[in-house]
C-alpha cells in the first residue's frame, strides 16, 4: 500500500518507488498522445500551496493534475505574510474550505508540510521544504536516469555526483537518500563551507575536489548557485567558484563515457554548468522537465486513487 503522503522519499520503500516509476511510464505515454488528457482524477481537487515562489514546480504539478482531469485551486503566499504557528494554521483553514483532496506544499521552513499533514485530512505532497527535502525532484531525477542512461540495468553499482551548494540544497539531500536506497553510490561535492559533514553516510561520500567527484560517475548533477550565498561570505569569488566547481566538458572527461549531465533548473549558464555542456548530447536537463510531469502525474494518481 502506498504511503498516505509524499513528505519525504524516506517514507517510500523501493517497492513503492518501483510502482511509481511503472505508473509514470504509462503517464508518459499519455503525454505523447495528441490528446494529452485522461479522466482518471475527475472529481478530485488538487490545491497548490506555495509559500515560496516557484514557477516551474507549480506549473509541473498543475499540468500533472489537469492532464488527469483534476480541478486545481492555487494559493500563493509570500512567506513574509505568515509567521509560524497559528497564522499557518489559519491559512490552511481558509484553504481547506476549498475542500481539496490533496495539497502540494512548498515552504521556506523545513517541516511545514509535515505539520500541515497533521492538521488536514487531505493528502500532502511536499514540493520542497526549507533545505530538508524535495522528494518529487529526486524521484524525477532517478526516473530520468533510469529512462535515459544507455543500457540501464539497475541502480546498483551506479555513481551519482552532485556538485554545488550542498548545504542549502534540499535537492541534494533528497537525491542522496533516494539514490542510495535504490542501490547507487552518491558523491556530494562543493566548497568546504557548503558541505555539511553530517551528510556523510555509508554510501554517501563528500569531497571538495570536483574531478574526484566526477571520476567514473554515471550521472553528474550541478546545483543552482544562488547569488545571496556569495554575499553571506560562504563563497569565494564567482570566478573562483566557476573554476573549482563549474561542471564543464573537462570535468565530464573524468566521468563514465555515457554519463548523463543533470540540473534541477533553472540554470545559470556558465556559472555552475557550462552552457555548451547543458546543450550537449549527454545533457538530460530538458528530459528532467518532461519527466517531472509524468512522475508527478503518477504521484497524484497513487496518492488519490483507492482511498475510499
Amino acid at each position: 500500500m502506498t504511503p498516505t503522503h509524499l513528505l519525504d522519499t524516506q517514507d517510500w520503500s523501493v517497492a513503492d518507488v518501483t510502482a511509481l516509476f511503472n505508473t509514470a511510464d504509462v503517464m508518459a505515454q499519455v503525454m505523447e498522445r495528441t490528446i494529452k488528457k485522461v479522466p482518471a482524477l475527475q472529481g478530485f481537487t488538487v490545491g497548490t500551496l506555495f509559500f515560496e515562489p516557484s514557477t516551474r514546480t507549480r506549473l509541473s504539478f498543475e499540468r500533472a493534475a489537469r492532464a488527469q482531469s483534476a480541478d486545481v485551486v492555487s494559493f500563493a503566499a509570500g512567506s513574509s505574510s505568515l509567521s509560524k504557528g497559528e497564522s499557518l494554521k489559519d491559512t490552511l483553514r481558509t484553504v481547506d474550505a476549498m475542500q481539496a483532496d490533496l495539497y502540494v506544499v512548498r515552504h521556506a521552513v523545513s517541516g511545514v508540510p509535515h505539520q500541515l499533514a497533521r492538521w488536514t485530512d487531505a493528502r500532502i505532497v511536499n514540493a520542497g521544504d526549507g533545505r530538508r527535502a524535495h522528494p518529487t525532484q529526486a524521484l524525477l531525477d532517478a526516473y530520468t536516469f533510469q529512462k535515459n542512461f544507455s543500457g540501464f540495468d539497475g541502480f546498483a553499482g551506479k555513481k551519482l555526483a552532485i556538485v554545488g551548494d550542498v548545504l542549502h540544497s534540499r535537492v541534494a539531500r533528497s537525491n542522496a537518500e533516494l539514490w542510495t536506497k535504490l542501490g547507487a553510490q552518491v558523491t556530494l561535492c562543493g566548497p568546504r563551507t557548503l558541505l555539511p559533514p553530517e551528510l556523510e553516510q555509508p554510501n554517501v561520500t563528500l569531497t571538495t575536489n570536483i574531478r574526484e567527484a566526477a571520476e567514473g560517475a554515471h550521472a553528474v548533477m550541478a546545483l543552482r548557485l544562488q547569488g545571496e550565498r556569495m554575499q553571506a561570505g560562504l563563497l569565494p569569488s564567482l570566478a573562483e567558484y566557476r573554476v573549482r566547481f563549474g561542471v564543464t566538458e573537462q570535468v565530464m572527461a573524468h566521468a563514465h563515457p555515457d554519463a548523463l549531465v543533470m540540473h534541477p533548473g533553472p540554470i545559470n549558464r556558465d556559472v555552475e554548468i557550462s552552457g555548451a555542456l547543458a546543450d550537449s548530447e549527454g545533457s538530460v536537463i530538458e528530459a528532467q522537465v518532461a519527466n517531472g510531469v509524468s512522475v508527478r502525474m503518477a504521484v497524484l494518481y497513487m496518492l488519490l486513487v483507492g482511498r475510499k
Binding site: A19, P39, Q42, G306, R307, K308
Partner: peptide, 17 residues
C-alpha cells in the same frame, strides 16, 4: 485511467501499459 469509479474504490488498481 478511464474507469468511472476511481473516486469511489478502496483498492488502487495497477495501471498497465
Amino acid at each position: 485511467l478511464y474507469r468511472d469509479d476511481l473516486t469511489e474504490i478502496a483498492l488502487q488498481p495497477v495501471v498497465k501499459k
